[in-house]
């Protein structure tokens, strides 16, 4: 399990794509186009492999990944 906070993962992904690293925890990341769907797949794989989140859960909805606050909730629920 990763000890790196999920917001750092997102900020690092933004930086890799030349996007501003400063982001509000309630700001939309994917629906706003800051990160594309390919980045979303990378993040989803990181959530599964490093944070133990089971995305195959029938209750999972992609909109739960759209802000850092939602990601933090998802990760803390899986911990």
């Amino acid at each position: 399990m990763s000890t790196k906070p999920i917001n750092e993962v997102v900020i690092s992904m933004l930086a890799d794509r030349g996007k501003p690293a400063e982001i509000d925890s309630n700001e939309a990341i994917f629906t706003s186009g800051l990160l594309d769907s390919l980045a979303a797949t990378e993040l989803m794989m990181a959530l599964e492999s490093e944070y133990g989140v089971d995305l195959a859960d029938a209750d999972f909805d992609i909109s739960q990944l759209d802000t850092i606050a939602e990601l933090e909730t998802l990760v803390s629920a899986a911990a």
Binding site: S37, M44, L55, A56, F60, I62
Partner: peptide, 21 residues
């Protein structure tokens, strides 16, 4: 963009989270 979003939202993500993990 919005057609790509439709395909990603309703086909890509649901498949991605369930198969060949």
């Amino acid at each position: 963009f919005y057609f790509k979003e439709l395909l990603v939202d309703f086909f890509f993500y649901p498949t991605f989270v369930r198969y060949f993990k």
